[in-house]
Write a protein that binds this DNA or RNA. Structure first.
Lengths: 182, 182
DNA sequence: TTAAAGTTTCAGTAAATTCTGAAACTTTAA
DNA sequence: TTAAAGTTTCAGAATTTACTGAAACTTTAA
């Protein structure tokens, strides 16, 4: 499988960025390849297209499956496994977001909760705990907010986003209305 | 400088998570230390508290300055540099968000734009380009939306967040209103 | 102006992560 | 049942990233 120049640089770029997005180079390349390739790919095709070892592909697929980004597809009469991305791009973006929250935020929330269980021994620690409390509250708020938005259906979410900072106007309006109601 | 047990585990946790958040272990520990320590710290104090080399602290400070998270503070009659976090925790969260967008998203947007400049040579490439266009549009929408929210003042942003998925109700209401106006 | 105190840099080393490839394991058609 | 095709695992090699510590540089008080 030969990649066109444009395809090639797209795939390589996702490799470079991969580490910033929570996976390693080859995993980044793999998901990029699957996204721009309409048909499902076998592990061998992936290895060939990216010039990486068969073992590495297998590791990468496992990783992408743990991210819920890739799934197996079977072709009748062919016992090979073929892999494709799960859902459309919107769905994938949501999934990546959810998984990153789970991996990057949840462990911290749970550490903070346990630290905040008991109280401070001295002034210095009191300040530290106060900061931890603030961080906890902030993260929790962001988490709940994003979870509630993520539960909207794509179209709705899209119109909310289009509104942008315009929400505030709607907010003011809502306040005015609910006041006049009383 | 000796750290209490709670402080210690907070700092170490930020070290572990650091890599998932875009910096390395010691940089993560450093920012955690500064956040829970009320007074500004000298490089030597940081090195001692974390048992890391002086050179490493210097590197880490440079990194945190490039993230706009840490600034120098001078104490009259003392020629040493002391370091503190920039702004309150809300401000820091915004800054981290902005910097991560800049580092994790902008390069991809710009690659996609350049790829989309010219057209496809064949069907396979046409599909690839179509996917790239979709990714581009999606990222751009998210970017603009988050930028517009980030421009709100903290209190406003907070009430928008508290509203959560409730925005949709307000949205419907707004639609009804603007229709009846016409 | 100088020397002591403070700060930064960076070459080399250490540690962590990623990748390869061969061996072990699994599946299925004959 | 077996052997060929397909798949997965994992120990060690390669690569990348982080860290140390000593040397170079900068600042300032005398």
């Amino acid at each position: 499988m030969k990649l066109s120049t444009k395809t090639q640089s797209f795939v390589m770029h996702f490799g470079e960025m991969g580490s910033k997005w929570g996976f390693n180079r080859t995993v980044g390349q793999m998901i990029a390849l699957m996204v721009i390739h309409e048909k499902a790919l076998s592990a061998d095709e992936i290895a060939e297209a990216l010039s990486i070892s068969r073992g590495n592909v297998s590791m990468g697929i496992k990783e992408l499956q743990s991210w819920r980004l890739v799934q197996v597809q079977h072709i009748p009469g062919d016992r090979k496994d073929y892999y494709t991305t799960v859902g459309d791009l919107w769905q994938m973006a949501r999934t990546v977001f959810e998984e990153r929250m789970k991996r990057e935020v949840e462990p911290t929330l749970s550490l903070l909760r346990s630290q905040l269980m008991d109280s401070a021994d001295n002034d210095k620690e009191a300040y530290a705990l106060q900061q931890m409390q603030e961080i906890h509250d902030l993260i929790e708020m962001l988490t709940q907010w994003s979870a509630s938005l993520n539960s909207l259906k794509p179209e709705t979410l899209q119109s909310v986003m289009k509104l942008g900072a315009g929400v505030t106007k709607v907010l003011e309006f809502k306040n005015k209305f609910s006041n006049s109601e009383k």
